[in-house]
Design a protein around this nucleic acid. Structure first.
Lengths: 156, 156
DNA sequence: TCCGTGTTGTAACGTTATTACATGAGTTAC
DNA sequence: GTAACTCATGTAATAACGTTACAACACGGA
């Protein structure tokens, strides 16, 4: 995997940010939770819960689905990880706003399976516009697009 | 279920439109496919593939998952039915644009489970804006919001 | 020390979706 | 007419994704 950026630095920066926030809020970043986050940061793409579970198993950290799902639930609850609905998979948050709840949009490449998290915008999108018209109160929004990323487009 | 609109008329209008389009394009609206579409129109909400399969089974129209999934695949391919990713479920298309490929947004009520399909807009949404900036070519977009519909909000 | 809360371990199960292969119905080509 | 082809269906088995339920353990107060 040729990386444009310094991947290990990218990981440690993200981990630092998460650790700081956990200390600040008294959240327990236990070994399993920390390891799941690291795995997702290392891969830098969407992984299924069972992919993660396989890695945990290989490292002797729990072998049953709830172990992975519980860690993911914790990480998602606090915005460190996002769920990609169209893939039934999970990615580490790469938005700058790990310290803020946000409703990001994702661009998912169908060939390299990388996921680009786009920065949150506060303006009204289509969903908000439609919701207003219908008197609908949005609690959670999913915005995901599948297609070809710039790199894969160039390669084809 | 108290309906505000004339439900049977709504169903037959939708069926007519689908039939016309199938004739026009030489698509085979077979008994199973037709029945699956009718079931979704009758319910007027998102149904899981196995819910649909149960109904088919009860009517003697096939009992194995592929029967339902194949019919849904056909109906989705031609825009008669949409998949709701956040529910792993399916709804009949209620947009006026059954004759046009469209990328609708959905408002999903978490209490009554109704799904509001919003009319397609052709403007740039967040996803398009983000994609442009990243050189990403969108092939399919998913926009779904969960929350409370106007009726359920009023009731609480 | 006892209780309450939160985390983990484990087995079993439930739900959603796909693969693989066989059969049948209709169409076209020769 | 029949062989070859395409498209739709029937069926069994399996894969992939996710949850429930309960036991055990650790830690911080009252």
């Amino acid at each position: 995997m040729t990386e444009i950026h310094d991947h290990s630095a990218c990981i440690s920066t993200a981990m630092d940010r998460v650790e700081r926030r956990c200390r600040a809020e008294g959240l327990q970043l236990t070994p399993v939770r920390r390891r799941v986050l690291e795995i997702l940061l290392e891969e830098h793409r969407a992984l299924g819960a069972y992919d993660i579970l396989d890695r945990l198993r290989a490292e002797g950290m729990g072998s049953q689905p709830p172990v992975a799902y519980r860690a993911l639930e914790f990480l998602m609850k606090h915005g460190f990880v996002h769920r990609i609905e169209t893939l039934n998979a999970f990615v580490a948050c790469t938005g700058g706003e790990i310290d803020d709840p946000h409703m990001p949009a994702f661009l998912i490449c169908r060939t390299c399976r990388r996921v680009i998290e786009t920065p949150a915008e506060n303006g009204r999108g289509r969903l908000e516009t439609a919701a207003e018209g219908a008197g609908f109160a949005i609690e959670h929004a999913v915005r995901e697009a599948e297609g070809l990323c710039a790199t894969c487009r160039a390669a084809s």
